[in-house]
C-alpha cells in the first residue's frame, strides 16, 4: 500500500496546485488504490493546501468515491424505486445482518463489501442484486443466501 501511495504522490505532483485538481486527483487515487483512504485525503489536502475536511467534504458528495477498502467481492443492492417497492430494503438488511457488515463497508474477512445503488437500469427484473459483474434478478432472501456461496 505504501508504495502505491508513493507512486500516487509522484503522479500528483504533475498536477497544478489548485482546487480544480481535486476531483481528477481523487479519481486517479481511487483508480489506483480502489478507494479513498484517510492517507490519500491527507496527502491530497497537504498538496493542495486544503484541510482534510475540505477534501473529504467534496469527495463524499459524489457517489463515485468510496472510503473503505473494497472486499474480494462487491455486492450492490438496488434501492431504486422499482426495487424498493418489491423489497430491496429487506435484501439490504439481510446482508447487513447475516454478513455482519454495514452498507458502504466491508466484512472483517474482506470477503464482501456492501453497497446501495440507486437504479441498475433493469427495473423489470426487480428486485435486482449485483455481485461483482453478475446481475441477479428477482432475488428473494433464500436466493440471496444461496448466491453468497458462489463467491469466496
Amino acid at each position: 500500500m505504501k508504495e502505491r501511495i508513493t507512486c500516487f504522490t509522484e503522479y500528483m505532483c504533475t498536477y497544478p496546485k489548485e482546487e480544480g485538481s481535486l476531483i481528477p486527483l481523487l479519481q486517479k487515487a481511487q483508480g489506483e488504490l480502489g478507494y479513498i483512504s484517510p492517507e490519500i485525503v491527507e496527502t491530497v489536502a497537504d498538496y493542495l493546501q486544503l484541510t482534510e475536511s475540505q477534501v473529504f467534504g467534496v469527495a463524499s458528495f459524489y457517489s463515485q468515491f468510496r472510503f473503505s477498502e473494497p472486499g474480494r467481492h462487491s455486492i450492490s443492492i438496488c434501492l431504486g424505486t422499482a426495487c424498493h417497492v418489491v423489497g430491496g430494503e429487506i435484501l439490504l438488511e439481510t446482508c447487513e445482518r447475516d454478513l455482519e457488515v454495514k452498507s458502504g463497508e466491508c466484512t472483517s474477512d474482506m470477503r464482501f463489501d456492501l453497497n446501495r445503488v440507486a437504479c441498475l437500469g433493469c427495473c423489470a427484473l426487480a428486485p435486482v442484486v449485483k455481485i461483482d459483474e453478475d446481475i441477479h434478478s428477482k432475488v428473494n432472501i433464500i436466493k440471496l443466501k444461496e448466491m453468497w456461496s458462489n463467491y469466496e
Binding site: P38, L50, T51, E52, S53, Q54, F61
Partner: peptide, 28 residues
C-alpha cells in the same frame, strides 16, 4: 479560516464535522 468542518455526504446521510469520523482535536 480553519476549515475544520464541512458538510459531508448528502441526502439523508448528510453530516457535519471533520473528515471521516475524526475528532475535532485531531482535525486541528
Amino acid at each position: 479560516k480553519s476549515s475544520v468542518l464541512s458538510l459531508k455526504q448528502r441526502g439523508k446521510q448528510t453530516a457535519i464535522g471533520p473528515a471521516f469520523d475524526e475528532t475535532h482535536i485531531h482535525a486541528n
